[in-house]
C-alpha cells in the first residue's frame, strides 16, 4: 500500500535525477529549474485553493517577500544562508498570519479582492523603499546558496537542490492531505457549516493553511532569488499571482501533480510560443478558456477520467 502510494513520486524522482545528465543545452536546465521553483509555489497554493477552497490573488507577495528576505540578508548583511532562510520563513509566516486573520473572514470574490490588494501593497512597498530594497531597479548581487561549505553555484547543482526540495515538500504535503488535518481542510471546500458541526475550528484552520501556503511561496521565492541572483518588485505583481493560479487551474485543482503539470506547461509554452510574441497572450487566454470549459478538473482531472474510461472499456471487453 505504502509503496503503491509512493510509486509515482519515486518514478518521478528517478526521472528527475537522470534528466539533466542527458541535457546538452544549459538553457533547458535553467527552464527545468524554474519549473521546479514554480511547482513548489503552486503546491502551497494548491493546498489553499484546490484542497481548502480558499482563493488567493496575492501569493506573489509571499514569493517576493521570501526572495527579498534572504536576498537582503545574504547580499547586504552577509548573513549565512541557513539563518537567513529561517528568518525569511518566520517573517513571511508572521505577515501571512496577520493578513490571514484579517482576510479569511471573507469569502469568494471578497477574499480574492482582499488578497489582490495585499499583493499590490507589497508591490508598492518594495518599489517605494528604494534605500532598502533597491526600489524598481531591484536587488542585484544575491550570492549562491551555501550550506555547510557546499556552494550551489551552477545550474546543474541548483537543479538538484530545487527538485530535492520539491520532492521533500511533496512527501510532507501528501502526508498532510491524507491525514486528520488534511481531511479537515478538504471539508472546508464542500461545507464550512458541516465542518464546524463536526468540531473543526474553521477560522483557525483557514489561517493555518494560508500561512503554510505562504511559506511554500516564500521558499520558492528564496530559490528563485538565489538562482537568478537578482530580484525586482516585478515578481510580486498581480500578473505573477494570476500566473500561479492559472498553473493550478490548468494542471488540476486538488491534485498535487496538477500543480507540477501546470507549472511545466506554463513555463514551457511561452518559450515555445516566443515566435508568436505579439499573440502570446491570446494563445494563453485561449488555452485557459478551453481548459476551464472542457476540463473543469484541469489536465490531471482529464487524464484521470480518460484513464478510468479506458479501464472500464478494457474490462467490458474482457467480460464480453
Amino acid at each position: 500500500m505504502a509503496i503503491k502510494r509512493h510509486l509515482p513520486l519515486m518514478l518521478f524522482g528517478c526521472a528527475a535525477a537522470v534528466l539533466p545528465l542527458g541535457l546538452k543545452d544549459p538553457y533547458y536546465l535553467g527552464i527545468l529549474v524554474f519549473i521546479g521553483i514554480f511547482s513548489i509555489a503552486t503546491m502551497g497554493l494548491n493546498l489553499l485553493m484546490g484542497y481548502a477552497g480558499q482563493i488567493s490573488l496575492g501569493h506573489a507577495a509571499f514569493y517576493a517577500l521570501g526572495a527579498y528576505a534572504t536576498g537582503l540578508l545574504t547580499a547586504k548583511y552577509n548573513v549565512h544562508f541557513l539563518p537567513a532562510l529561517i528568518a525569511a520563513i518566520i517573517v513571511t509566516a508572521a505577515i501571512a498570519y496577520v493578513i490571514g486573520i484579517a482576510c479569511l473572514r471573507l469569502k469568494g470574490h471578497y477574499l480574492a479582492v482582499a488578497t489582490l490588494a495585499v499583493g499590490e501593497i507589497v508591490f508598492i512597498c518594495l518599489n517605494a523603499a528604494v534605500g532598502f530594497t533597491g526600489g524598481p531597479s531591484g536587488l542585484a548581487g544575491i550570492p549562491s546558496i551555501e550550506i555547510g561549505g557546499f556552494s550551489f553555484d551552477s545550474d546543474f547543482k541548483f537543479y538538484y537542490l530545487v527538485w530535492a526540495v520539491f520532492i521533500l515538500l511533496f512527501i510532507l504535503t501528501a502526508n498532510i492531505i491524507n491525514s486528520r488535518s488534511g481531511r479537515a481542510l478538504r471539508c472546508l471546500h464542500s461545507s464550512e457549516i458541516a465542518a464546524a458541526a463536526m468540531g473543526i475550528n474553521v477560522t483557525k484552520l483557514k489561517v493555518q493553511v494560508f500561512v503554510l501556503s505562504a511559506v511554500y511561496a516564500a521558499l520558492a521565492g528564496v530559490l528563485y532569488g538565489h538562482s537568478v541572483t537578482f530580484i525586482s518588485p516585478q515578481s510580486s505583481d498581480l500578473m505573477f499571482s494570476v500566473k500561479l493560479l492559472t498553473m493550478i487551474v490548468v494542471g488540476g485543482m486538488g491534485n498535487l501533480w496538477g500543480g507540477v503539470l501546470g507549472a511545466a506547461l506554463l513555463t514551457l509554452l511561452p518559450e515555445m510560443l516566443s515566435a508568436f510574441h505579439d499573440y502570446e497572450l491570446i494563445i494563453y487566454g485561449s488555452i485557459l478558456l478551453v481548459i476551464v470549459m472542457f476540463l473543469p478538473d484541469g489536465l490531471m482531472g482529464g487524464f484521470e477520467a480518460l484513464g478510468n474510461k479506458i479501464i472500464r472499456k478494457v474490462r467490458a471487453r474482457g467480460r464480453g
Binding site: N175, R183, A184, G199, G254
Partner: peptide, 26 residues
Amino acid sequence: FSAMTVLENVMVGRHTKTGCGMIASA
C-alpha cells in the same frame, strides 16, 4: 463532503476525538 470518499466523510466525524495537528501529520 463531496470531494472525499464515503469512508473519509465518516472519518471526519472522529475529529473531536483525535488530536494530531498538521506538523505531526506532515
